[in-house]
């Protein structure tokens, strides 16, 4: 599946009276290719999260459209768009995003339970193997409050990937992780990409550009394509 943003832009409402409304995202065309890992970097406040949320169907763009294949996702009703998000998207938002009332395992299975889908043994096994690869399978029955920041982030990664999403949108997923764990996550992204998913990763990490099939840089609401250093296999 291809996610395609067509001349989207975003201007947030003024926070204070005298503040001039800045375009957080200037008019942008953007394509997220399937079977590719796209890395997006840029200074803080340059509009990365804004773009990612627009792509995720979570933030109405001021102008423009976002298409998943042929579907204009902002033309859908909230219910249909939500269903779409659940079905095709795996989203790792910036920051800590676990539900405090659910255990690690319940958090990971949330994309299934949300719509009352039956959680089969196969699904559970898949979820467990994700947790195992991320090195947190022994924490599966713990509550988020009993986890470290890095462990929580890895749970969020597992939750985003558990349903084998066609589109993976990750906003600084390795923010507070060590090198080893960063590599584990990048390897996971590689696998999903090889299975045909489109993966977008927003990051500040410097030395991972070689993983990227497509590399973008954002600067005050504008997006620029950089040269990918990846040696294609």
């Amino acid at each position: 599946m291809i996610l395609h943003a067509e001349s989207v832009s975003k201007e947030y409402k003024k926070r204070r009276k005298n503040q001039k409304p800045d375009a957080a995202l200037k008019q942008t065309d953007f394509v997220l290719e399937e079977g590719a890992l796209t890395i997006l970097r840029g200074a803080s406040g340059s509009g990365k999260t804004t773009l990612l949320n627009i792509l995720a169907g979570l933030l109405n763009p001021s102008e423009g459209h976002v298409f998943l294949d042929d579907t204009d996702i902002y033309a859908l009703s909230d219910e249909d768009r939500s269903r779409f998000r659940n079905q095709y998207f795996g989203i790792i938002p910036q920051g800590q995003t676990l539900l405090s009332c659910l255990t690690v395992f319940e958090n990971v299975l949330l994309p299934y339970t949300l719509y009352g889908e039956k959680v089969t043994a196969e699904i559970k096994e898949n979820a467990l193997s994700l947790l195992k690869r991320l090195g947190i399978d022994d924490l599966k029955d713990n509550l988020p409050s009993e986890l470290s920041g890095g462990e929580r982030r890895r749970v969020a990664v597992a939750r985003a990937l558990v349903k084998n999403p066609k589109i993976v949108l990750a906003d600084e997923p390795t923010g507070d992780l060590d090198e080893k764990n960063t590599e584990i996550i990048l390897n996971l992204f590689e696998e999903y990409k090889k299975n045909g998913s489109a993966v977008l990763m927003v990051t500040h990490e410097k030395d991972i550009d070689h993983y990227a099939d497509n590399l973008y840089r954002m600067d005050t609401g504008e997006i620029f394509r950089s040269v990918s250093l990846r040696k294609r296999a």
Partner: peptide, 16 residues
């Protein structure tokens, strides 16, 4: 509200 936002991100609709 943050938890509600997360549930929305995971695919819950406003109605849910």
């Amino acid at each position: 509200k943050k938890e509600f936002a997360i549930i929305r991100v995971t695919g819950a609709s406003e109605k849910m």
